[in-house]
Design a protein around this nucleic acid. Structure first.
Lengths: 185, 185
DNA sequence: CCGGACATGTAAAGAGTTACATGATTCC
DNA sequence: GGAATCATGTAACTCTTTACATGTCCGG
């Protein structure tokens, strides 16, 4: 139930068309809630029919024509409601940890290469976040909005930092492991 | 595409019935790949029809009767293939971060209570993990399997530690923020 | 006027969630 | 023999992903 609220947030920050939103979901909002253009168009249709957003009157409604949306008061109220409502955290779901657990049973052959690849990807992501931090959050600006947004970005930075550290450890530890295949089968 | 492999891993560790698996997915494997009993039964049916697992011959096949499964060589091979195959990490998806971003636009009213609640939940989870670590990974045991399993558990511990630290910071920072509602609307 | 980029959409399949249904066993 | 519990399963729905379809605009 988060995608509509992600879109409302994005539209409040700046009224946009479907494609604009898609591009913004490739970065920014997408760093912690990704969505494809198919999801976005469908959700825009729903939000409009519910009276949470409306198309800006300027554009024509035909296909292939750009159509921008803005948030209506009802949409803003719904977003505020959702933001304040209690929600349980979702349990962790990570395929890499699962693969490691599987590797403990069927052997680690081939896994280390992908661990190294993930390590590299996380290093790139961290570099990107740090670039953004340097650009958008120079010391001194501590408006309310900037502080919250910086807090969110720091979560991303610290999570990537964790993965880099953990994967480094994992890569160092894995190759020395003897393949259990020989013993268990 | 991870659930069948989670089940294969669990069954290799120990042949089980659907309900046994459901219980094990409430802890252990479920700490990083959760599943409900409905998903598990459906997937057991699929895995059996594909020849990856089979019901242990002992039990009768009627409804309400316990039925245990074991992994066949084809299932083990499939699991080994999947474990070694390259997979891209899934982008972060976290509703709490999204809510914070929304709060930067519509105001933080009500959010701090839920942040505190999450903080408490993560503290409990960390305590549970540390209990497991103390019980299952006493210093000295460094078999191949134990080292990999410990590595996975440490990921959980460090992730919870991160959230506790970050949420503590967030809770400390939020209440001092002025509500943007007054300015932006 | 045609090919490519831009822009909005539809269709179908896969994965996960929620609610409900049914049979067997056990305990009183 | 009735209620509670154990155990397996169905059905319907939502969310996400992948592939495809259609229309517009612009440069050559």
């Amino acid at each position: 139930m988060s995608l509509p609220h992600a879109i409302l947030t994005a539209l409040l920050e700046k009224p946009s068309s479907g494609l604009d939103l898609t591009r913004r979901f490739d970065k920014s909002i997408g760093y912690f809630w990704s969505a494809t253009h198919q999801q976005i168009y469908r959700e825009l249709g729903r939000l409009e029919s519910e009276g949470h957003i409306r198309a800006l009157p300027s554009a024509q409604p035909t296909r292939g024509q750009k159509k921008s949306y803005e948030v209506l008061p009802a949409g803003r109220a719904e977003l505020a409601r959702w933001t304040a409502a209690a929600q349980d955290p979702k349990p962790l779901r990570d395929a890499l940890l699962l693969r490691l657990r599987a590797a403990a049973v069927v052997g680690t052959a081939g896994l280390d290469a992908d661990l190294s690849r993930h390590l590299d990807l996380h290093r790139r992501q961290l570099a990107e976040y740090e670039e953004i931090e340097k650009r958008d959050f120079p010391p001194g600006n501590d408006s309310a909005q900037a502080r919250i947004q910086h807090l969110v970005l720091r979560a991303g930075i610290e999570l990537e930092t964790f993965w880099i550290q953990w994967l480094t450890e994992a890569v160092a530890e894995l190759p020395t492991v003897t393949d259990p295949e020989a013993r268990t089968s």
